[in-house]
Each structure stands twice: as structure tokens, then as C-alpha cells.
Amino acid sequence: MFEIFGIPSQALFGQLLIGLINGSFYALLSLGLAVIFGMLNIINFAHGAQYMMGAFAAYLLLQYLGLNYWVALIIVPVLIGATGIVVERLFLQYVRKLDHVYGLILTFGLALMIEGFFRNYFGSSGEPYQVPNLLLGGQNLGFMYLPTYRAWVIVFSAIVCFATWFAIERTRLGSYLRAATENPALVRAFGINVPRMVMLTYGFGVALAALAGVMAAPIYNVSPQMGSDIIIVVFAVVVIGGMGSILGAILTGFALGIIEGLTKVFFPEASNTVIFVIMAIVLLVRPAGLFGRTA
């Protein structure tokens, strides 16, 4: 046990860890939002609800079918991603060519309906979800105690973020996505089925939210409002990083989680507002966001 700037190391690194955990979820969620916004031009306000659905799906699979965390980690993104594809086919394909406001209101309405549905059936108190046996326990690193599950969340979300970035920026399929973001009509005229690609992109973005939800289940309570609690911060992250920037969403997500954690140590009163203060400053200095391209 030692002190840094008069703060005990356990407290400092503990908050840093919480910051990194939150940052992992910010990064995963803002990444999905950035991918969806880039390709569909939709501000997906249902993202928080889809994250919550991911957590609930994991909980329900365990309760009623006895399927454990690891199975949920694979099945839930596919299931919830599929509901996203249904939403894209039923609604978003028609509103995404209109002004942003239409997509925003539509997905906001969806989010309210989904949340209301879950609150009606499960109440708002929340349900616990056990940390999987394999990841129980933790390590005493001397300067802090590191629970294994939290280390797993940080490493795994970093891997998922990197893999997504790589797929979009460095592969053939990713070059189709980037090109279709710029000029969908021309990409389609080259023989690529752009509407199908748009549909699958939305499904993928939703699947990322659901994956984050599964990972969050053992850390936060599984509750209907868990999505709306986090989504406002995530939107601030996206704005700071720059709408539609993949790398920006990832880096800003992790960085703001850490900044938020450190603020809790050094100036706890500001910890709930620091991200929005940063957002205001970034918007004044760089309206397109830190990593945003000005068109």
C-alpha cells in the first residue's frame, strides 16, 4: 500500500480499473453506433435498449434453458442482431434516406417500447447474473486487487474493438463498407448488393451492443433501465470521437472511461459531468469531433 498525490494506491487504481471497465463498454457501444451511423445514416437511439436486451437474453437463457455465459456470449449477439435485422427491414430501410430526425425519433420510440416491455415483465429492481466459474476470483497485484472477470472484460472488449477496426479498415469487405458509406449508388452500380450490406451492418452493430450487454450482466445488475443509464454517456463519447469514425469511437470510449474514473478520485463531485464538459469543449474547438472527418 502506497500513496500517489495523497491518494491511496488501492483507491486510485481501483477507480482506474472501474474507469477502464466503463470505458470498455463505452468503446463497444460507441463503436456499434459509429458503424451504424456511417453506413445507415441512422442515429440509433435504440442502442441502449439493444444492449439491455443482450443482458436480459443472457439472463433468460441461463434461467430457463440453463445455457451458461460462454454459450450466451455467442448466441445472444446472433439472436439480438437478428432482431436488429428485422427492425432494419421493417422500418429503417425506409427512414434512413430521410433527415436524421426521423431515424432518431423512430429508434428512440423503439427504445422506449422495448424498455417498457421489459419493465412490465421483470420490474425495475434488476436481476443478478453470476460471474462464470472460470472467471471467479482475482489477483492481488500488490498495489490493487484485480478481479479476473474485470480483467477479462477489458481484454476481450479490446480484442473485439480491434477486430472490428481491422475488418473495416484493412479487409476487402471493409473497403466495400467504406466505399458504400461515401457513394452507395456507385458501389451498387459496380455489382455489390448494397441494401443487403446495409441490413447486415445494422445487424452487426446491434450484435455488438448485445455482446456488450452479455459482458455487462455479471458486473452491473440486469435491469430494464441499464441501457438508458449508459447510452447518454455513449452518445457523448461518439460526439467527442467524431460521428462515424471507427478508431475515434474506440479510443475515445476507453479514454473517457479512464478520465471519468480518475475524476472520481480527484474531484468526485464532477465525475458525473466531466464527460459532458469535455463534449462541450470539443464541440467548441473541433465541431466534427476529435477524429471526425470534415466533409
Partner: peptide, 24 residues
């Protein structure tokens, strides 16, 4: 046919504005 199906039928276009992608 949709334009992707027309492309697969064997027509290709070089548009007036050239359509070079900045992010590629």
C-alpha cells in the same frame, strides 16, 4: 433490374465525377 444486377449482367460505368473513394 436493380443497378447491382445490371452490373452483374456485364455493364460497367465510369461516372463523370469519376467516383474515386477518398477513404480507400
Amino acid at each position: 433490374l436493380s443497378s447491382d444486377a445490371i452490373a452483374r449482367a456485364g455493364i460497367a460505368i465510369c461516372p463523370e465525377e469519376r467516383g474515386i473513394f477518398a477513404s480507400l
